[in-house]
Structures are given as structure tokens and as C-alpha cells.
Design a protein around this nucleic acid. Structure first.
Length: 496
RNA sequence: CGGGGUGUAGCGCAGUUGGCUAGCGCGUCUGUUUUGGGAACAGAAGGUCGUGAGUUCGAGUCUCACCUCCCCGACCA
């Protein structure tokens, strides 16, 4: 048996991830450091995720727009925290048309500074509100240490930018959009997420509140899978987004921004993948069912031909697969691929489709043709089941439901097994240094300096204050690190 | 930006104190036999040895400079 092309997760998770990304044909490095080439199979996964996100976002009444990718540098300098947060990672265009530009342009790392000048012109009255727009685009952030899908220097995402009369309305929408991200993750990506808000140190540069969904990778690290910010009046004040209210008084608007990127692809790989490769949830699988005809020798084919119902120009498998209505229906209802490659052995194909994470495989060999059956193989369990050919469609439907449910439950169980209540800092330090660490549930003081010290000592930071803990007293009245009064129970972890 | 590596065929690598026509594995292409868990054999194609300069009769190999990419940190709203 040939050795696996991918490193075992338990040996080196980071190498496992790079191996899967390469061998499953998702992406490869480009000539530009930190910018990846997304290959068709990887891009299709993103397009399917995008389809679900887009549906959910548009269902709330948000409209799509497009703003330019170049932003005047001076726009970034308006909001103090924003410029401090982003200037280290800006790409700047200094030349155009062969000449040095008088005023340089930044390539957007996010579009607050690109859009809000226009918002200021568009919004005059409370009647113009709420304004709720979204754009699907690319952004560039000059990352020091890129990683496929999770932190590339150029990435695709959507960014929503919305404007409201009141703080209350804005905050309500911030949580509404976060719920949509959580729903997409849980329903379509089969990934359980923790919802909540970020600490002072971890929030978006320029936001009043940053909310987040966090999913767990199989090495116990946390991935921020989507984020929704209440910007307050920080940007409306500097960009002049103001309106006359119902009493004729001028007010600065309350704004939100929210985004999710193809980081979600990385979250799926790291959240579901195993030593055989990818495991894709059916809704976002480019190929949901692969049908694998298994040929034997020409002799067998001839035997079958002479035995049966076969026109001379059609092979046995063509007859079986294309001639039966059950397959016709499958191809109507699912993304199906028939692997007709004659030059490859079945063992090779099994491994290849498992590596690519195809949820359901249907194997049809001579035995199945003779007995009018088919074999259904489930990627999540790696188990085979023999079914009658006339039941194939129903059986596949059940298998898909079970497959996706199982992916979700396995990920949830993994997260629960790797979430630890910690009462003191020495246990925390020991826990964080484990190979497969996880989430640390701690009572914390919420002091930014305390968080900085924790980060310096352990490289772990707060990830989220889960919404369910927001209105609860902490389990321990003292901070697990500094001993000052604790405010809430937070989740700390190492992260991507 | 700090520390450590690296650069030779599409990918992964070897290349001895400087020496003759630069090699191996995987992959690719052609053919034959195969085909129920990563097939075998035969043949073929594929190289400015990161770049530039230097030492030498002779440099993949030695010297200097530069560049690249990777890993570990810092940075990552």
C-alpha cells in the first residue's frame, strides 16, 4: 500500500493542513508572497458558502453595491483608532500612468474609509435611514505571516455597512447579522460556533463593540469565523454622516459594519478534516455524490454483455448508470460526478475522493449489477452499506442527512471535550502549552493590561465573552490571572 | 523587524578533498499487461544548478555581495 500523501493530524497539524489544501486541489501559492491561487475545487466551495451567505443577508433587506478598491490615503487618517489599526498592513499605490501620484492611494483593507464619504452625501434626513448596503469584494492586508484561507494578504469577503438613527436599532442589527453568520456556519457548514463579544484589546479598530463567532479547529485553536461591529458615532463624526431627526435637529448617525470571508473555507477544513483529508458538509460540497463504476476484466464485461440486456455500443456500466431512472433523478437533485476514468484502479479513486471530502460515494461493480444493488459509502464514518438499486435515492437522502448531522455533532463533541474550566493561572499556562489545547473558561477582570500580560506569558488571548454569560455573575469573583474582581466568564484560547 | 534555515527538472531531494557527459524518487508522456483499498514493466521528454562578481587550467561545489522562499517570534482590526 502506498503511503499517504498527507501528514497525520496528530503528528503535525500545521503540515496536515498545508498537505490537505495542496493535495485536495484547493489552492497553491502564487508568485506573490502571501497571495494564494484558488483552484476550481477550492473556489467552488467558497462560491457555495457565498451563495448561502448572500441569500441570508439579502433576505434581511440589504442591497449590494460596489465601491472602488483604491482609497485616498487621507481618508484613513480621519479615525484615530482605525488608522493605528490598519496603517501597518496597508498596500499603497504611489504611481499611476507612469508618474508619481500627488496623493497616494491605499488598496482597501476594508471599506469604511472608502464608503462613508458617499454615505455623508446620501444621508440628509431620518427618512434616508436605515441605509443597509453590502459589497462582495477583495481586500488587501499586508500580513506578516500568511496562511492559506485563514490569513492571506489578499482575500475575498463580504462587508456590510449599515446606518441607523439610534444606537438601539444599530445594536439590534449588529446581533441580527451575527446570528446570520452563526446560522450559516451551523446549518450549512455543520460547524458549531460560540457567539459573543470581543474584549477591548481584540475589537475592531474604530468599533465601540465587536461581536464574533468563534469556531474550534481540531488542534484546539480558535478561528474567528465572522464578525459584526457596532461602530457607534466614531465614523459618522469624522466622515460627517449626519441627518435631521424627526424634531428637525441634526444628529450623527449610528453605524455598523460586518464581514465574513473565505476564512470560512479554512474553518471547515480545520473543523471537520481527518487523516484521510477533507470532510465536506453536503451543502457546500462541489461534488455531493461520486458514482464509481468498478470494472473488472474485459472477460467479465463480455460475459455480462452476452448475458444481458445490452446494446452493442453501450458498456455495461453506461447501461446500468445512465440507463436507470434512479441515476437520472440523482443527477437532477444533487451535484453528482461519475468517475469514468478507465486507467485508474479503484483503490486510487477511493483515496482520491476521500481526500477531496466527497460526502457520499456510490460504488457499482459487476456484483452490484448482477444483484441489482449498489454500495453507499459515507465519508464521515468511512462505512459502506449495500442497498437495493430501487431504494438508492431514498437511502442516499438518509445518508446525507446522517452525514451532515454527524459532522456537526462530532465537531460539537470535540469542542466540549476541549473546553476546560480553569480557576488559576498556573493551570491555564500548563493547559495552553498542550499540543491539543482548547477553550479555557475563566473568570476575568476585563482589564486590557491584564490581557496583555496573559498574552505575553502564554500567547493566548480572550476570544469571546459568550452572550449567554453576558448577564451572569462570574463563577469566581476574582480574576484567574491578576486576582482583581472578575466581571464575567470569558473564553480564552490560542487562535488563528 | 529579530532569530534559524533554504535555493539543483513540475514536486521532494542527493551531489564526496573543486574534475570528465549533473543524478535519484515521485509526477508527466507513449506502449503493453492490469483494474473490488493508492498497479507492474519497457521506453521517452524534462536543467541558464537563485542572481551577479571573484578565485582557478577547470566551480553545482570555494570567496564576497545581493535576492528568494520557508520555519520560530513580534504583528494580525
Amino acid at each position: 500500500m502506498e503511503k499517504s500523501k498527507i501528514t497525520k493530524q496528530s503528528e503535525n497539524f500545521s503540515e496536515w493542513y498545508l498537505d490537505v489544501v495542496r493535495e485536495a486541489g484547493l489552492s497553491e501559492n502564487s508568485e506573490v508572497r502571501g497571495c494564494g491561487i484558488i483552484k476550481p475545487y477550492g473556489f467552488k466551495i467558497w462560491e457555495l458558502i457565498k451563495k448561502f451567505l448572500s441569500q441570508e443577508i439579502e433576505a434581511t433587506g440589504v442591497e449590494n453595491v460596489y465601491f472602488p478598491s483604491l482609497v485616498p490615503m487621507e481618508n484613513f487618517e480621519k479615525e484615530k483608532n482605525h488608522v493605528e489599526g490598519f496603517s501597518p498592513e496597508l498596500a499603497v499605490v504611489t504611481h499611476g500612468g507612469g508618474e508619481k501620484l500627488e496623493k497616494p492611494f491605499a488598496v482597501r483593507p476594508t471599506s469604511e474609509a472608502a464608503m462613508y464619504g458617499a454615505y455623508a452625501r446620501w444621508i440628509k434626513s431620518y427618512r434616508d435611514l436605515p441605509l443597509r448596503l453590502n459589497q462582495w469584494n477583495n481586500v488587501i492586508r499586508w500580513e506578516k505571516r500568511p496562511r492559506p484561507f485563514l490569513r492571506w494578504s489578499e482575500f475575498l469577503w463580504q462587508e456590510g455597512h449599515t446606518v441607523f438613527e439610534t444606537e438601539e436599532e444599530a445594536k439590534k442589527e449588529m446581533w441580527q447579522m451575527l446570528d446570520i453568520y452563526a446560522k450559516v456556519c451551523e446549518n450549512y457548514l455543520c460547524l458549531p460556533v460560540l457567539k459573543g463579544r470581543k474584549s477591548e484589546n481584540e475589537k475592531f479598530a474604530g468599533a465601540v463593540i465587536t461581536s464574533t463567532i468563534e469556531s474550534m479547529a481540531k488542534d484546539g485553536k480558535s478561528i474567528q469565523a465572522g464578525t459584526s461591529h457596532y461602530l457607534g458615532q466614531n465614523f459618522s463624526k469624522v466622515f460627517g454622516v449626519k441627518f435631521l431627526d424627526r424634531k428637525g435637529k441634526e444628529q450623527f448617525a449610528h453605524q455598523n459594519s460586518w464581514g465574513a470571508s473565505w476564512r470560512l473555507v479554512g474553518s471547515v477544513i480545520m473543523g471537520h478534516g481527518d487523516d484521510h483529508g477533507l470532510r465536506l458538509p453536503t451543502p457546500i460540497a462541489p461534488i455531493q455524490i461520486v458514482i464509481l463504476p468498478i470494472y473488472r476484466t474485459d472477460e467479465n464485461l463480455e460475459e455480462l454483455e452476452s448475458a444481458g440486456q445490452l446494446s452493442q455500443k453501450v458498456s455495461v456500466m453506461d447501461f446500468y448508470i445512465n440507463g436507470l431512472k434512479v441515476f437520472e433523478n440523482l443527477q437532477k437533485n444533487y451535484r453528482v460526478k461519475i468517475d469514468e476514468r478507465m486507467d485508474l484502479r479503484p483503490g486510487f479513486k477511493f483515496n482520491e475522493w476521500e481526500l477531496k471530502g466527497v460526502p457520499i460515494r456510490v460504488e457499482i461493480g459487476v456484483k452490484e449489477v448482477e444483484s441489482k444493488t449498489a454500495i453507499i459509502f459515507r465519508r464521515d464514518t468511512m462505512q459502506r452499506k449495500i442497498v437495493q438499486i430501487e431504494n438508492l435515492e431514498d437511502e442516499i437522502k438518509l445518508a446525507i442527512e446522517a452525514h451532515d448531522k454527524n459532522l456537526f455533532l462530532q465537531a460539537l463533541a470535540f469542542r466540549e471535550q476541549h473546553t476546560f474550566r480553569i480557576e488559576n493561572f498556573s493551570d491555564f499556562e500548563i493547559g495552553v502549552k498542550k499540543d491539543i489545547a482548547g477553550y479555557f473558561d475563566v473568570s476575568w477582570c476585563e482589564d486590557p493590561n491584564c490581557e496583555k500580560e496573559i498574552k505575553e506569558k502564554t500567547s493566548a488571548v480572550s476570544r469571546v465573552l459568550p452572550t449567554k454569560n453576558e448577564n451572569k455573575l462570574p463563577k469566581n469573583s476574582k480574576c484567574f490571572h491578576c486576582g482583581k474582581p472578575a466581571k464575567h466568564d470569558w473564553i480564552f484560547a490560542r487562535s488563528y
